[in-house]
Amino acid sequence: MSVAFRIDPTEFAGKRVVVTGGTMGAGEAIVTRFARAGAKVVTAARSQPQSVGLGVHFVQADLSMPEGIALLADQALSHLGGVDVVVHCLGGSSTPGGGFQAATEAFWQQELSLNLLATVRLDRLLVPQMLERGEGVVIHVASIQHRLPLHESTIAYAAAKAALATYSKALSKELGLSGVRVNTVSPGWIRTSAADRMVERLAESGGIDEQTARQSIMDALGGIPIGRPAWPEEVAELVAFLSSGRAASIHGADYVIDGGTIPTV
């Protein structure tokens, strides 16, 4: 089960969009959302997906490495002739549980490269052509962990996303008068296929049903008041809104989409 929204197929007609991390989860939903609304989309991943949608150009590249970012930027500009919207959805954590002592130098470097430096590098290559035209949209997908870190399992990821949110705010202040808008989207738990697989593993290892396993994850987050994770399509709708002319005066903001998980103002 997921959610479906009515989409205007001309909403982003003529727009040129780059989405990192666009072959799975929320990133895939964002790619699909833009493509269905008429945009030309370029995305990238390490492995070739089984298929990409109409209007989507795929670049095989490791975006945690500078050369992978350079390849994506070069092919995006060549294929599209320019970029109007860039959505940085790349991210993830592979650091083992166990707190700060379990996170080695190599893990820290990996988390920072994937969750922070890839974004900084791509912005350096794509934002200048937006500045030349005097218009563009940059969206950084962070995480509620930059405000609500899970220290035992994702300390490096949370720190990198906190740095990303700070970088995004600083960039918005620098670009405020240029016509290029910069915003952050901070999701909580999203019900992706990877999240469902995690629930299945937890249920199997604990000898419990999947609903109980899913609830245990929500409890670990301190609860989700709406009673469920967000669907990827819901995150994609927020990104689409912030990329549209309807959000023309929204700049330097951090939009949380977590079902109320963060318990404070």
Rank of each mutant, 00 (worst) to 15 (best):
S93G: 07
L77Y: 15
I30Y: 00
L71F: 08
I155M: 15
M218Q: 11
I7R: 01
R197E: 15
A247H: 02
A248E: 14
L80P: 01
L116W: 07
L131D: 00
G14Q: 07
G223V: 12
A26T: 12
V120P: 05
I155W: 11
S205H: 06
V182W: 03
L242A: 11
G55E: 06
T10W: 07
M198N: 01
G252C: 09
L202P: 02
I190K: 04
R16C: 10
Q75L: 15
P187K: 03
F12D: 09
T166F: 11
F34L: 02
V85F: 11
R124P: 01
C89N: 14
E28K: 12
A162D: 03
S249C: 13
L175A: 14
P232V: 04
L148C: 13
S47W: 07
G176T: 14
G53N: 11
A240C: 05
S193N: 11
P96N: 04
T154Y: 15
P66I: 06
L131K: 07
I257N: 05
G14N: 10
L202Q: 12
V31M: 02
I250E: 12
I257F: 11
N115T: 09
V199C: 00
E111I: 08
Q215I: 11
T192V: 06
N115V: 11
V31P: 07
A170F: 11
Y255A: 14
V141N: 08
S64Y: 05
D209F: 03
H79V: 14
G176W: 14
R6T: 12
P66C: 04
P128T: 03
R246E: 05
V17L: 14
W189A: 13
M218D: 00
R36W: 02
G222V: 13
P9H: 00
L150F: 15
G82S: 11
D84Q: 14
V127K: 00
C89T: 11
A70H: 06
C89P: 01
T192R: 02
E132L: 12
P229Y: 07
S93R: 01
L77A: 14
A37F: 00
S178P: 05
A156F: 13
S193W: 08
V41L: 09
P128F: 07
V235T: 02
A61H: 02
A230H: 01
A220Y: 14
V137M: 05
E204H: 10
R191Y: 13
S113R: 10
G259K: 07
W108E: 01
F241K: 06
L150T: 15
D258Y: 03
I224A: 10
A35D: 00
S172Y: 10
D209P: 00
A45L: 03
A61C: 01
G222R: 09
L164M: 12
H57K: 13
H140P: 03
G14A: 13
H251G: 13
L77I: 15
T43E: 02
A158I: 06
S178L: 08
V56W: 09
